[in-house]
Amino acid sequence: MKPRLASEWLHSCAGCEIALVDLGEGLLELLARVEIVHFPLLMDQKYAGRAGEGDGPELPAADLGLVSGGVASEEQRAILLAMRRSCRTLIALGTCATHGGIPALANERSQAAVRAGVFADCGPAPAEAPACLERVYAVDEVVRPDLCVPGCPPRPEAIAAAILAVLDDELPATPAKSVCETCPARREGRAATRSARRFLDNAEYDPDEDLTRMRCLLEQGLLCMGPVTAGGCGGSGPPLCVQVRVPCRGCYGPVRPGSNPLLDLMNGLAGQGVDRRSVVDRRSLLRFCGAHGLLRPVAGPR
């Protein structure tokens, strides 16, 4: 019997699922190895039971479950609990699931305030819509996943490798390198400026020369999250954003589990003599990892 696969998406954008589809022919090979029992993007199985009622939806038993997105409503929580109940091995797929992702930027306010703000110009917030939780949670704040595959989105090959490893009863090694450690840009060991520049003009580089000749973007004075961000986005190649000469914003989450990338980066910059006040909106350095209590409501206007 083929292993059974289930997939669900929560507080997310579908980018992780698109990354899976981006495997191309590899997707068809992968799908042929499994029996899909639940996958709303690709298949027509419905919930037994309602997501927002009673014990929540019932999902068919599966050997492997993929869940993308964080958790921000009672319904999403119920779906995640149902996935955990029904899946032998559960993979938290993508940075929203592992660290909250971009939607957890909303954690600087309460979910209720976000909702009220969105509908402020056209009437009251929808009263009959699914009830929101007080903030956006990562998957591991609600249930224990067996494996975390970060990335916004993760590389298609990394998703496939994780799925295949589980099917073959192994757990894949998680990369421990930072984006910087995978970046070939030229470093001189000191910052060129005392302030962090906003990305309002392109970096300095010769487009005819490869990345090894370009000076490190952070040393050029551009804010780059490379030192504190988990690497692997470029596979065995350079980081993807740097390939198009754009600084990293941290989409794979912190390189050290449980760390605070905002503090780590600001400390690093201070060590280089960079003035912390030159970084506008410092809290948005946590833009991919606002779950786990890292982003919290602040008093007064931002």
């Binding site: 939607p103 979910q111 976000v114 909702r115 703000g117 969105v118 819509a129 699914p130 990305f199």
Partner: peptide
């Protein structure tokens, strides 16, 4: 048709540097 998810981008981008 009920749309069951809202992330609130219009709200949480407020205060961010626009170029981001």
């Amino acid at each position: 048709v009920e749309i069951t998810s809202l992330r609130g981008f219009e709200q949480f981008v407020i205060g961010r540097p626009a170029e981001e």
